[in-house]
Design a protein around this nucleic acid. Structure first.
Lengths: 343, 343
DNA sequence: CTGAAAGCGCTTACAG
DNA sequence: CTGAAAGCGCTTACAG
């Protein structure tokens, strides 16, 4: 059941059916109605594969990817990038093409944004690091009718934004559940926010909130100390921390970002006993400590899959008007030493 | 870069190029060499999408799915089935078709196997419940050059079998890690194998082994009691169990199959305190107890995804000779109350 | 053994 | 406003 059948049933040419399907101009109201009726009755759906066959060589789908520069500080970003590359490879025959733009701060983000809007893109994948700049991007994209998918974190933006990210609040609750299982109600808890250049990130705050929410949910008022430290001051220990360090109880340490690997050395330096550590992301250093038992749990955000899903969902939206996958909740994946797998 | 370019460069017609690509008969050695050389030099790869365009309507890819009858006892199997249906929907335009055959015991398995080989299928997806019967199936499939993918469990078979399943040994180790975290070294552990009609399943045994392997890996000799009970005798409690039940220590209960939900009521009946329960699969009853805190952890085998992956990987094998996905390790997914998601 | 033509379902100029 | 034809990359009869 294809366009040809529809044309025959509606007594028009296939060209006209095509025009109706794509809401192109130049079809009389009456003809349009007639064709739509037949489409409705027969339950016809466009064969996207066939439709891409010609376009794949003539008119590619072009997606701009605006992500952090991949260097040591942000090596995390090679994973989402890799995911986008895999999706492009899978969709190669469908004519999908991506161009990478990288930024290192809000200034270069704005520059690259300008570069993107100078070209003709069909979709944009980026990261909501700079709220203001993202709103500008969204506004521009809206005026050109270009869908924008944000990875990694959800922040409040002015509308029309899609997000593929883990629910940080739930991740925090899971973290609470897991650490509480090891530490129990007689222990003490540290929430460690390691700040970066841009201060505390929205998702770190959401994780912290989730962690506290978990304790509320089990009706336990437990001693939780929040520590906000810039990256270069992680090893600065306050009086209160030192007191807690010395206690005989178990201690649960929740690191709200990817730098849990900084903790074991600190604990060793201060000779802290009875500690349990949970953090985020399967980077090399974290995995090393998970393997040797100095970190107990890691939560994975499936960064590669986030990139993969962004491209696939944009493709499905652009070719089938299927927006259902543009917002995606990445499951909170719990990793222990035994179930480390390839990422 | 398509078949047309290759034809031009090799000074032959596109028909001949097609013959070479598909190793069809009726091409002179010399012509074949010439064409292969050009293909090599240009790095040409067949456009599978285009090649399926015509075949999708003329010659469908037909896959037989031989799985347990879906009734209460085996309601689990509606999940892999659903996954296959989703993959078929996704590949609809590529002309993929599945036919479901269901069995209820080894006799009907053999019957359905016979029915399958009476028709012309391009691939088979099934389940390794009956080793002997599976070897017969594999032999038949091999003689007809049909790939066979087994879901759920890996058992030793006579060769040529592909498996999409979780590594049960690793799952058992993860279970050990998680329960040990809650119960500690002063507690006691129960491994509960709930037998079904077919006795103990291979993967239950593997999970048990993994669990014990974990304790070895952390150098702890802990008291672990294995309990093998048929489904209708789960509530039969031995003398030794009763003694352990009364102890003041923490108790970790590892249920090696999907019936962890039977445990909380049993524990209540015997008034057992200080218990922690871990089991497999996100069925309705298990989820109920995970939500109300009577079960602490569930391990998910992503059954829906197993079915999905089986169809996709068979398609990739049949259309691109890409066998790389026919064997697949499903990650050991850890579920707590807070990260229950849609399955 | 090889080539030329028709066709898969759709899209795109072009003609009227 | 509408239709007829060419073409996307490949496969399949058919002719020689």
């Amino acid at each position: 059941m294809g366009i040809k059948q529809i044309a025959k049933l509606a007594n028009v040419s296939i060209g006209t059916v095509d025009r109706v399907i794509h809401k192109r101009v130049g079809v009389s109201k009456e003809t349009e109605r007639k064709v739509l009726k037949i489409i409705e009755e027969t339950g016809y759906v466009k064969n996207t594969t066939a439709s891409r066959l010609k376009l794949a060589s003539v008119k590619k789908i072009k997606i701009a990817i605006l992500i952090p520069e991949i260097k040591n500080k942000w090596s995390y970003w090679k994973l989402p990038k890799k995911g986008t590359a895999e999706a492009v490879e899978e969709l190669r025959e469908m004519g999908v093409k991506v161009v990478y733009h990288e930024f290192s701060d809000s200034g270069s983000f704005a520059d690259q944004r300008a570069a993107i809007f100078q070209k003709e893109y069909d979709g944009i994948v980026t990261v909501p690091f700079f709220g203001k700049e993202c709103n500008v991007l969204l506004k521009l994209a809206k005026s050109k009718n270009i869908p924008v998918v944000f990875l990694d974190t959800e922040i409040p933006l002015e509308g029309g934004a899609y997000f593929i990210r883990q629910n940080s609040n739930i991740a925090g609750m899971v973290a609470g559940r897991l650490l509480h299982g090891l530490v129990g109600k007689d222990g003490r808890y540290f929430i460690v926010n390691i700040l970066n250049d841009m201060g505390i990130q929205v998702n770190n705050k959401q994780r912290e909130d989730g962690f506290r929410k978990f304790f509320k949910s089990i009706n336990e008022e437990l001693p939780v100390l929040t520590i906000n430290h810039p990256l270069n001051e992680v090893f600065k220990v306050s009086k209160e921390m030192e007191t807690w360090f010395k206690g005989d109880y178990r201690k649960g340490i929740f690191v709200t970002n990817s730098r849990a690997h900084l903790i074991p050395d600190l604990l060793k330096e201060y000779d802290v006993q009875n500690t349990f550590v949970l953090g985020f992301d399967l980077n090399k250093q974290n995995l090393k400590y998970l393997r040797n038992g100095k970190i107990d749990f890691l939560i994975n955000q499936q960064p590669k899959y986030q990139g993969y899903a962004a491209i696939k969902s944009l493709f499905n939206f652009l070719t089938k008007q299927d927006a259902s996958e543009l917002n995606l909740d990445i499951p909170v994946e719990i990793i222990v030493k035994e179930n480390i797998a390839d990422v």
